[in-house]
Design a protein around this nucleic acid. Sequence first.
DNA 1: ATGAAAGCGCTAACAG
DNA 2: CTGTTAGCGCTTTCAT
Lengths: 330, 330
Amino acid sequence: MSLNIKDIAKLAGVSPATVSRVINNSGNVNEENKERVLKVLEETGYKPNALARGLIHKKTNTLGIVVPDISNINFSEFVKGIENQARSYDYNIILTTSENNFNKEVECFEMFKEKRVDGIIFSGTRFTEKHKSELDNSTIPFLVFGQNFEHEKIISININNQKAAYDATKLLFSKGAKNIAMIGGPLWDRAAGYDRFMGFLSASVERGLKPNELIYEEGDFTIKSGYNLMKAILNKKKIDAILAANDFMALGAIKCLADLGYSVPNEVQVMGFDDNIIAEIYNPSLTTVKINFYEAGKIAAKAIIDKINKLKVDKYIELKYELVIRKSTI
Amino acid sequence: MSLNIKDIAKLAGVSPATVSRVINNSGNVNEENKERVLKVLEETGYKPNALARGLIHKKTNTLGIVVPDISNINFSEFVKGIENQARSYDYNIILTTSENNFNKEVECFEMFKEKRVDGIIFSGTRFTEKHKSELDNSTIPFLVFGQNFEHEKIISININNQKAAYDATKLLFSKGAKNIAMIGGPLWDRAAGYDRFMGFLSASVERGLKPNELIYEEGDFTIKSGYNLMKAILNKKKIDAILAANDFMALGAIKCLADLGYSVPNEVQVMGFDDNIIAEIYNPSLTTVKINFYEAGKIAAKAIIDKINKLKVDKYIELKYELVIRKSTI
DNA sequence: ATGAAAGCGCTAACAG
DNA sequence: CTGTTAGCGCTTTCAT
């Protein structure tokens, strides 16, 4: 079917080794032979078989990526950043999605092992025994985005969620809020759930509130859960501000407030997390903690490629975040 | 470093061939030997090298994907569909993004050739001579989403854009619109630009309008262009409805109308295309032509895999669409 | 039922 | 400067 290096060698009247030398610019080749080979290469449109090359070099120039859901804008921005950066280093990515299913995640790691990817970038919420043993038995560089899992082999990249939530809460207080409720993520999610809650808690306590007075509802990061929890809170307490653990829940909360006739931000201020593209164009636009997922992807790809190339890479890379103030707060 | 089949063979006290037989369930293996091999496999966590296998079988179980922008929700849904379907057939995907840059697209095709992907799914707007020659010289099954390029080797999958735009325009007329303007895409985009415009034109003409009376502005599918073109139209003509060639431009138009004090839908009705996640949650929610990108991805993956397996696959697969009526129309 | 050996397409070491 | 050879890790005849 498709030509191999022997065919090219025959056509050019040289040995396969010479063709290889021309293709890889390795070793010296007589100018005349070089021309001939180049010509045949051009005419035939020959492309060297990356599998054979990979076999020899034990290198595939491929990164394995696992994200929970590529249709979530945060992750698609993240993957976009990875892909762009990777390409600039001549790497490609095998993309998989896990829906946060632990078994699927582990299956992906095994597939990556078979396909001999050079590095893995993982975004997930849990680090089970299976994950651990997978990592223990692997020599493939491994990077985790968005969590701070404990494992010697893991490079982590993340924002300081606790500090970010603390800053966000303080912002709401500074804008006159007295009764802030939080619509958070599941607490077993140590980063976007637990840490963001802890930031909210510490800012509230600093303000003089008792931990058991805090109004907190645990959601699942969906618009719907934001909507429903907002409703639940309004039925119970009088509040004047909401901190949501992500933008989707914040948007759900705003929608609920609008449906029930509350004015945002005059009666209730709302703040989100992430700075989803929708945050800016929604009506009212959403005040939020901006995380640059695209940039995070670029940094992640750079870090894992550096690691692959045996360069020194920090075990923990802290990402910047930024409070973006829009119309959903005063 | 990592173990190979010889190591496993040694550990189990059999030959590599026997290990291979156990792994692939090919040929007969004595029950006792099988057990021993299985045990070693288990203990070592051995994973066969997919490169070596691919070399022999001339098959990688990998699909190459090119989309313009993975952070665009339409494409991320599409890719999600591909990935899910592909995985169920034991295929993985190499994802690349092109930003609609022709050179990048062609580079991706060449890379796919080197990495010996089994099939390619391409989403782009132009089919240049380079694209053509790339395809002419390739034996890799090739599928195009969202365009109807002319080439014997291409499997196309798309909605009937002209008919969809025709239906959308008629819907606006049926809701009492008298002066509909269209904010379209670039006409050189034969599908989302040209065909959608033609549908608008034919419905308008059918209604008794002269083609040269039509109000049409050419945008680039961004929120910003929707906003700016809306403003331009309002400065020139009195209109009571807008058909946009995608949801982003429709959202930009609504935003502009709101900024200028027009009521949507009472003074101006707005209709989009695609049914972006934002269409539903925007305020007002957007009437639009729904395209199921996730489903499209599943269908595309199934089609290309069928083609890889030499099954009969239609050269053109027409996708369904659906008018979704929300609050931006009466 | 099992092992030896050849070979997938390429590169690298070694002669010449 | 160039060709021959061995071998990356696996599968698959072909003998036994």
